[in-house]
Design a binder for these strands. Structure first.
Lengths: 176, 176, 176, 176
DNA sequence: AATGAATGAGGTTTCATTCAT
DNA sequence: AATGAATGAAACCTCATTCAT
């Protein structure tokens, strides 16, 4: 749990610009978009990107980490179903691959935080009777990831997305 | 609807070997695996791969087409839930991306066939009362794709896969 | 000066069809057109092309040889200027490279025949006073090749071709 | 009419080395010589060639552009006949294809400049009586291209080149 | 003699990453 | 810290040529 030295102000600004640009570029072109394109969009030179993120994977991980952190922050404002809907909408918008498989050690912590937040919402939902008590966290996460991926790959319209989630929510509510 | 001339026996054998090798390679390394690797695994020269599949995309499309055709054949032997489970298991095994978005014109027909087959199973399930009558085909397909993608990306174990599908099936059965 | 064994009738027919196709293909697409394209156009398999012409260069040489032989036959019907005009028009039509550089041993003989024919026409032209007596065969051949190449590469219209040849003919006629 | 940003000193040096190497390589081996060979000769990595010239065609166009620009600069020092001779000698030396057909939009401007320069020399030659007044620029350019191509393809010796040009010059001078 | 599938060297091009400026 | 030119491995793909059928 090393603390990084604080960045110089301009470096911090560049880091943020790069992340924003990368988020936009990968959302548009998928994760195979080139790092040069990210640099161009961020208005910095390619070397600067690599100074901040030594490999392309580091850059992708950093995007994911920031995105996950944002989601965690937003969790408190939602109940489970609303949050679920929100996350799926996000995933469809930012095309960034929500690859929760924590093979990537760099994301283990961020994913853990999201899982905790969802766990809290799940407990609340079960307490209020909105979700059946037999449901456990892993399958909720699995469903979340699945629907995100599905929305990502298949270009659903809003209506289909709603109807799909309706089924999932009914399943969570039901006696199994 | 052009009919291709029938392939010579040796060419047909090589075509099949290449498809098998490609299926395995892409399952292991993802769709960015190199065509050279496929050739090596198939035991043919690189030119042979390109004679059969002029583009890497053609190769990927051919794999998907064969996979979809196989699934369609197997549909008749299952009810909706069993088929759903079977498809997800397949997807997890072959890592081949079940990208049903028929952006790829070459797959439109094959995807259509799968959709028809699922439609038939859905009608049967609704007739027998196993699935609520308000459910329509698009969301069933969306869920199928979603869970396949989820299984693909997240490396679920068998138990988690079963629990996740249990929720989906409950949702399909329920009053929405 | 080996005599080839006579070809079987069907083989002879194929040889001719291949030459015709090759002339057309190279005229349209330049000498970088693929040998497969020639085979396709000739309606034979690729192996047949290579049986008749063991290398692509052999095929190109054979085309040139036939083209040169035709020109030689036609020489008798023309005076020098008319023949010159005819050859240039041919070259512009068949885009086949009139590369008279007899680096290619296979063409030495055919080029020699053309040179003889032009020599005869030159002698006649000089006898009749149409060409200055100081002119010698090599520069006539050089000019012929030049204007052919020029017409080939620059896409002249008919009018420009005529005006260009007018200058050349005036030069041949003049006192130098 | 975009102005490119000025190159860094080292980049400019490499750009020039690549152009020099390419000129030499294509002169020796023709325009089908490989880009790798150019890189090797220039002493840079292959990627550097493609950073400067994203396409092989771009590289060929750049060579031609530089060559044409040099010729234009040298035009002022010559009269029409001397310039004509000079250009042909150049073409024979650098085997670079003087393909004036401005199919290649990238060369339209450079070719235009050469044509202007020749136009000026032609006007002077006509004013001084060295060239007949009926001659127009297009046929002069056509002859220039032709003799360059001829010299290129046929490997003339110096004497033949002189005698050939003598005929052309006589034609330009003559009453047509 | 003809077929056409297979070969494989070699071409162009891309792009993550390094490093001199 | 930032720049952006250079690197070079590796990707995709073409095509002249060979060879089993």
């Amino acid at each position: 749990m090393l603390e990084e030295p604080p960045l110089r102000a301009d470096a911090a600004r560049n880091r943020a610009r790069i992340l924003d640009a990368a988020e936009a570029v990968f959302a548009e072109l998928g994760p195979t978009a080139s790092t040069e394109e990210v640099a161009r969009r961020a208005g910095v030179a390619i070397g600067t990107v690599f100074r901040h993120f030594p490999t392309k994977d580091d850059l992708l991980a950093a995007i994911m980490k920031r995105l996950l952190a944002r989601l965690v922050e937003e969790a408190a404002e939602h109940d489970l179903f609303a949050f679920f809907t929100h996350v799926v909408a996000q995933a469809a918008a930012k095309k960034t691959v929500v690859d929760l498989l924590p093979v990537d050690i760099r994301l283990a912590e961020a994913v853990g935080h999201l899982e905790s937040a969802v766990g809290t919402l799940l407990a609340e939902a079960q307490a209020s009777g909105a979700v059946h008590t037999g449901i456990r966290l892993p399958e909720v996460m699995a469903l979340l990831v699945s629907v995100c991926q599905g929305a990502l790959h298949s270009g659903w319209d809003e209506d289909l997305q709603r109807r799909t989630l309706t089924v999932v929510f009914a399943g969570l509510r039901a006696q199994s």
